[in-house]
Design a protein around this nucleic acid. Structure first.
Length: 479
RNA sequence: GCCCCCAUCGUCUAGAGGCCUAGGACAACACCCUUUCACGGUGUAGACAGGGAUUCGAAUUCCCUUGGGGGUACCA
């Protein structure tokens, strides 16, 4: 056995890859990368009813899109497979039996009603609920009798009462009084393992050395350590990350909008920006430079420096960051990504060259790709709605600018962007000298008439893309 | 109810006893740049939850309170 660090991400395919899971995956990935370790993907699909193939695929796709590639997993294989829990059902009973044989576990025939009653009693007495161990000392005869009645037993782990201490990678020393835990079920009466049992067996068999996960698992940790110890296995290191909270400080959920990585992508967030942003939730760069690739982050990553508190997921910074990535992106690639957001329009009327030009001149203020649909609408819609710019268009000076422009349009060379640029300059100069108009107002008049907006892309390029016919038509329509 | 975790500007964070009259980023606001809009630049405002204790000295250590989060399942 080597000392190589092995970490894993173990999502359950009962939903699309959650942004929180993505962050956990990222931190595991970074840790493995930094230490030269291995990153394993395991699918925890024991809950057959809630799991689906589509969700599984979404998890694969999202992880890949984020650049979190795994060394071992269901699709790529590895030496510790299978990597889907549903294919591992036969290995858990063996270990459960082993624990029974060694006296670490026992069969429990209690009914739900009995268990409920115990629990109610505990709450009534202001006590922590701990299983009564009613079935701990059942004789073989009693068990046979119960079994004859058709009651199928679950298997409970016999919790040793002691103070359990472990050193958490991010939180430091954590202490638990195991007498408060109670003998918990490791095998359900239907023969399937519970989560706490299955993870331990899987992590043990897969040789996982470090378990980095959300702090919602802290209270599972002592149970799992107890199982490792009973099994005589080496206990891995644990590290618990703070949670990601919605702005209202509750768990990020569907009612807050996007929660899955694929939701964000659909809204026009780039996976590079997403992963960068999410890394900053809990981790901060030593050089203060926040825009970084996953590789750069990995080089600078130290698990002990990760913040142990929760963080609120706010869109402001994500939007800014996404905008930064949009600005840096190559135009052809960006055009490919933007086209789907223009699906409502007939984009076929433009050449690829002009489409790329549209992308190039409208990308600046974009924060989310989907905004392109609004920002570039005037390139695709035949008729321009002037409601928003009525005030500008209806000014006498604007009318004058528009009229004069129409009259001189024949002198413009619409094949030459440079010429258009110069003609606009002439226009500004003319109105400044003859009418005392500010350059700003001259431009606004044209922009309003041509786009229905008071803000937008560079005018010369806009005019070039629109072409003479449309320019003339729109100017006339504005009068 | 019981157990556990957490606590610095609105948000993400830097800060591991003196370097802190607490630094950065986003957002806000102001100004500048610019032939419009945007980008960009400069600047302003903005926080150590409260109370004790330890110490010559505390954002940093300890305790209490408060607040937030998580768990408490034969879900994962």
């Amino acid at each position: 056995m080597s000392d190589k660090i092995r970490v894993r991400i173990a999502p359950s395919p009962s939903g699309n890859l959650h942004i929180g899971t993505a962050r956990t995956a990222l931190f595991n990935f970074l840790y493995a990368k930094k230490t030269g370790g291995e990153f394993v993907l395991r699918i925890e699909d024991t809950d057959l009813d809630r799991s689906s193939e589509a969700f599984k695929q979404n998890i694969f796709d999202s992880l890949k899109a984020l650049g979190l590639n795994w060394d071992e997993g269901p699709d790529v294989g590895g030496n510790y497979g299978p990597y889907c829990q549903s294919e591992r059902f036969d290995i858990y009973p063996k270990y459960a039996q082993m624990l029974i044989d060694k006296g670490y576990a026992y069969e429990c025939f209690c009914t739900n009603e009995e268990l409920e009653a115990e629990k109610e009693e505990a709450i009534k007495n202001h006590n922590a609920y701990v299983y009564s161990r009613k079935c701990l000392n059942l004789t073989q005869e009693q068990k046979d009798e119960l079994r004859a009645k058709g009651i199928k037993p679950s298997i409970r782990f016999k919790v040793e009462h002691k103070e359990l201490i472990f050193n958490d990678l991010v939180k430091g020393e954590l202490k638990f009084d195991t007498s408060l835990i109670g003998d918990f079920v490791i095998m359900k009466s239907n023969g399937t393992p519970t989560y706490n049992f299955a993870v331990v067996i899987d992590d043990m068999l897969m040789n996982i050395t470090d378990i980095i996960r959300g702090e919602d698992h802290i209270s599972n940790t002592p149970k799992q350590i107890l199982i490792y110890e009973a099994l005589g296995a080496k206990v891995p290191r644990f590290g618990h990350l703070g949670m990601i909270l919605a702005p209202d400080r509750t768990k990020l959920s569907k009612r807050h909008g996007a929660t899955a990585v694929s939701d964000f992508v659909k809204q026009g967030y780039l996976t590079d920006a997403l992963i960068n942003f999410v890394a900053l939730l809990g981790w901060s760069p030593s050089d203060g430079v926040e825009i970084k690739t996953v590789d750069e982050i990995a080089a600078d990553f130290r698990i002990h420096e990760v913040s142990s508190s929760n963080s609120v997921f706010e869109y402001d910074k994500l939007n800014w960051m996404n905008g930064q990535y949009i600005k840096k992106m190559e135009i052809p690639k960006l055009t490919d990504m933007i086209l789907p957001f223009l699906a409502d329009y007939d984009t076929s009327k433009y050449s690829r060259e002009k489409l790329e030009k549209i992308v190039e001149i409208t990308r600046e203020p974009l924060t989310v790709l989907s905004e392109i649909k609004h920002d570039a609408s005037y390139f695709f819609e035949e008729d321009i709605n002037l409601d928003e710019v009525r005030e500008v268009v209806d000014k006498d000076s604007s009318k004058e600018v528009i009229k004069y422009t129409i009259d001189t349009l024949n002198d413009w060379n619409f094949d030459d962007e440079e010429d258009i640029h110069n003609k606009l300059g002439d226009l500004r100069a003319y109105f400044k000298e003859n009418k005392g108009l500010k350059p700003k107002d001259t431009m606004w008049a044209l922009r309003a008439a041509l786009t229905g907006r008071t803000r937008g892309a560079d005018m010369a390029q806009t005019v070039w893309i629109l072409g003479k016919d449309r320019v003339e038509k729109r100017l006339k329509a504005a009068l």
